[in-house]
Structures are given as structure tokens and as C-alpha cells.
Amino acid sequence: MNKIVKKEKLAERIYRLEVEAPLIAASRKAGNFIIARTGKLGERIPLTVVDSDLDKGTITLVVQEMGVSSKKICALNEGEYITDLVGPLGRPTDIKKVGTILACAGGLGAAPMLPIIKAFKEAGNRVITILAARSKDLLILKEELAANSDEFIIMTDDGTEGKKGLITVGMEEVIAREKIDECIAVGPGVMMKFCALTTKKHNIPTMVSLNAIMVDGTGMCGACRVTVGDETKFTCVDGPEFDAHKIDFDEFLLRLGGYKDQENVLLENFEKSCKLK
């Protein structure tokens, strides 16, 4: 049982939670995630550790309401408990000094991106961050990302804030103007796919953090498998970060929808039961 000590709404359907988890706060590194479960019949879902506070013994999660499980976590209030929380999971980001980093965060991807750019910045890299979303009100963690970047660019599909256009447009502009040593992309699957295609053209080493479907998060089930090069890898223990140019994105995107029909039914039932209450 892990207590929520602080809750804050960041955008429509997106919340920042500060949760008591002293051991994870002490051992987590950039790139790690946890698995959370809410309620006795709850689902195990992975969430990135966005930040931690060693003095308070807390970790920060940013959760977007998607279906039943994320809605249940977002419905918890300060003082209430997440039933189970385990971690840190996954390999930490391979942080090294490479020169200039282009960090591409799409939508909720801003949350996992924050600890990654912090660590790259601390390691002495120049960090250029592009934050992109469909629209202005979906841009989250702007101040935090800006504070940890040497240059910070905002893009929206509809032009309501920052430059208008897809993230790849912003990427091309940066790449045209200066030498990028490594690119990191975190966001929706399709966005990561196109980021990878863009950097591939320019031969820029690129890493993505995959949000594959998981159950245990410890290598036990294989739900999270992904094809990297000609090998099958388990995202939870071999990732979540992989060489973007080796990933079979089409397979990855199909697998993300593997339980879509069942999830929709679960969500419908959940919303019905909420209305009844």
C-alpha cells in the first residue's frame, strides 16, 4: 500500500501524483518505471518514475486517463493508497556524454522524458528539447522540461501554441541547422515511428522508450515482446529503451492494440458502474 501525498491536475485527463515509496525513491534511475495496481481485482499497469524526493521518500508519477486502470489511479485522492506498487523496473537509460542531444517528447511522453533529459544534462550534454502535442491544452511539464534544456521548442498540430506542425517538422529544422549526436523520442507509438524514420535519413543514433503492454514487468510473461533487429526482446527487462532504427514499429503498433476489444468492454462496464453509483 502506497500513500498518495500530493495530487495535481496537469491537463485534461492528466494528473501528477506524488506517492510514498521510499525504497524505490532511493534506488530508481532515469528510465526506470514501476508497476501499479489499484484495488483487489485491479490490473497491473506500468508507469514511469518521473522524479523522486529522497527526503520525503516519494516518487512522482504522471498518469493519463486511458481506460479502467489509469482512471482508477487518477480517481484516488491525496491520503488514499495505491494497492500495490513495485519497482524500479526496466534498464535505466544509458547516460553518457555524447555532445548534443535532441529530445523529442510527444504528449504524455513529456513525463518519461523529464528524468532522461535531466540525466543527460547532468552528464554534460547540450540538450535541445521539442515538446509536441495535438493542441495547447495537452502540453504538460513545460516549465520542468524548459528548465532542464538548453533550448526548448514547442510544437502543436493545430498551431494553438508554439510552432504549428508535426514534431518531425521541428526535428528537421534543428537537424538542418546543427549537428545532433543522439536523438531520444518518447511519445505515442506512431510518433516514435516517424521520429525514427526522420533520424534514420540523417544517420542520427536514436533511442525510443517503448510503452508495450505488460503484466508482471519482470520478464515472466512475454506480453511485452518486441522485435529489435532480428531478435525478440522483452520490453520490461531488456528495455524499455531500444535502438529506434532496429525496432519493428508496425508489429509494435499492432501489439499495442492486442487487447483493444476486451479493453473497450471493460471500460464500458466500468463507466456504467460509475454512473450507477
Binding site: 490490473e43 503484466v215 515472466m220 506480453a223 515482446r225 499492432l254 492494440g257
Partner: peptide, 20 residues
């Protein structure tokens, strides 16, 4: 082997037995 519908017995049994 990675298409949807192919899964490990561990995944299947965990979903049903551990997660109900």
C-alpha cells in the same frame, strides 16, 4: 510468433489465475 493471439502459457495463466 509475435502476432496478437499468440501468447505464453505464463501470460495466459497469470492473467487468469493471478489477475482473475
Amino acid at each position: 510468433e509475435n502476432v496478437n493471439g499468440v501468447l505464453s502459457a505464463n501470460e495466459y495463466l497469470t492473467r487468469v489465475n493471478l489477475m482473475f
